[in-house]
Nucleic acid binder design. Structure first.
Lengths: 332, 332
DNA sequence: TTGTATGCGTTATCAA
DNA sequence: TTGATAACGCATACAA
């Protein structure tokens, strides 16, 4: 079924069919009805490739992240996909994995596929050495990032101020009397770096225990966290609270600590479903993913529709501490 | 940059450029090198829409599920995306939401977009009334389903035998002396129905307590599960074990039960990350998602490459009970 | 209000 | 080993 077939069936030209297809008002109601009927009868749908070739667009936006299996990215992708669907855009999903350098390749690949826009969700992008490439891409299509910031002209960055959030979390713990806050993280992405900075800032401002052993990097597995905590206990590193860059690290650390009779206040980050699954339920820093995604979508849609009024190149939301049971525990 | 530009630069025809682009061996090494060099220099990439129009394919497969935010679907999508990427296929993600009837629309939509194949991950599809439509789709492109089965010719179904898995879970609980196993579920998808059937089968075969109050439907929230358990306790429904269709229900039920001093063995399903986050860690029925996805990809790739030897229309994997702490508890 | 003709960038089929 | 040219299906400028 092509536009030609429909035209023939209706004794009109393909131009007329194309017009009703695109909702032009320069068609008589009579012929419009006739064509519409024929389309319905033949179950006709325009060929997206041909349309794409003509319009240089397939109404598709590329969504990039390191791994959709991760709860945070999964939720972001879900929100984005739902919103884009409402605007009649499709999403082409591309996951880069943790492997560094693969992300810029994925971005280039999306460009080759002529997506209408790209949304990048907090991947640890290798900006250095790729500034020119990214800039060039941003000149061609809208490029918006969530929890990530290239600081390049033409890119739009929607972030949560996790740095201040983490700083506030440190303050909250200090308010409970904690002086030696153990900080666990797994990677230093854009987001990861800011969290760590916020922790350090809080510790510095309040004059808390700042010994290096209180900052530990660990893989995101229960086993790794377990051996980490065991090591710290053995070395008698005197932590009286735990703060982590990820809920999963907090859940793991909390359990191991408690099993070793070290019941301290614990705060995670991301406020994902697993925070509620833990016992005691986990206090967590919510990074307002819903707001971030909503704004990202609005920005992308706006940029694709017009090149009208300028949009802020950076939008910042505040993180919010969601207090749960793990916060009601008093330090030893 | 088009094929014409490259051709002009090299003093050859577009046909020759097209040949080196597609790796034809009917090109002299000399001209091939020349063309390749020009392509590299100009950073040329073929227009995917034009190619799509010519080949009627954009090397893209549609992936359909109800919600990527859900851990199970997220992991499935992740596995599928990674595998397809290796085969140089892109994925177009489409989430239908729980709303019934939306799924067939999404499938039709993917067809209009001329994807090369569709993978459907366990959505509660409205088959009745749409048999003809689905059949027609399966005739046109490969259609494989994970934990879902249309039982229609031309569709390929990869499933985990969760029915037997649930039956075995009931046996395992019975072995510990449990007689009144509470079963919680949230929806009756293809997967959900089989799980429930497996539970009933086990109860029947072993002559366990089969009172209707032991089977309860509840939304997937902590609050809902909490009021459900409270109600059961108030009505003195005498359960001595809990089995659920989803890990999250098990985690919630386990917590509420324990807080009411009802420490019974608990088994969830899906063996997701939250099973490990619970305290005590949750025993869970693993539905072998990795195997399911791997097989799905193999099937899809095979079907797209050739119409050679027939593939099984149904592939079944066994579920596997992963025993954790929640299973070491003895019924009261 | 409608029709004709052309361009979009490939692939594929011939012929040379 | 190459080149000319016809599809592919649609949008659109221009003509009627």
């Amino acid at each position: 079924m092509t536009i030609y077939d429909i035209a023939k069936k209706c004794n009109v030209s393909i131009a007329t069919v194309s017009r009703v297809l695109n909702g032009s008002d320069r068609v008589s109601e009579k012929t419009r009805a006739k064509v519409l009927a024929a389309m319905k009868e033949q179950d006709y749908a325009p060929n997206p490739f041909a349309r794409g070739l003509g319009l240089d667009s397939m109404k598709m936006v590329g969504v990039l992240c390191s791994d959709v299996a991760d709860a945070f990215y999964a939720k972001a992708v879900s929100l984005i996909e739902n919103a884009l669907q409402k605007h009649n855009f499709d999403v082409m999903l591309s996951c880069t994995g943790e492997c560094n350098g693969k992300d810029i390749k994925a971005l280039r690949y999306l460009m080759q596929k002529h997506v209408d826009a790209v949304i990048i969700i907090g991947t640890p992008f290798a900006v250095q050495g790729n500034v020119a490439a990214i800039k060039k891409i941003a000149e061609q299509i809208p490029l918006v990032t969530i929890n990530n910031n290239y600081k390049l002209q033409g890119t739009y960055s929607i972030v949560c101020d996790e740095q201040t959030g983490m700083r506030n979390a440190v303050y909250a713990l200090a308010n409970k009397g904690c002086r030696s806050i153990l900080y666990l993280y797994d990677s230093l992405t854009y987001s990861g770096q800011h969290k760590l900075t916020g922790y350090k800032q809080g510790v510095l401002e309040l004059g808390l225990d700042a010994q290096p052993a209180l900052i530990q990097k660990t893989p995101r597995t229960f086993e790794a966290v377990e051996s980490m905590i065991h090591m710290l206990l053995k070395q008698k590193v005197p932590f009286d609270a735990i703060l982590t860059s990820e809920d999963i690290l907090a859940v793991a650390a909390q359990r191991i600590a408690r099993r070793n009779n070290r019941c301290v206040p614990v705060i995670g980050c991301n406020n994902s479903i697993i925070a509620e699954c833990a016992t005691p339920t986990l206090t967590s820093l919510d990074n307002q993913l819903d707001c971030l995604c909503e704004t990202a979508i609005k920005t992308v849609i706006h940029l694709m529709q017009s090149n009208a009024p300028a949009l802020p190149s950076k939008t910042v939301f505040d993180a919010k501490l969601i207090e749960r049971e793990s916060f009601q525990i008093h330090p030893q």
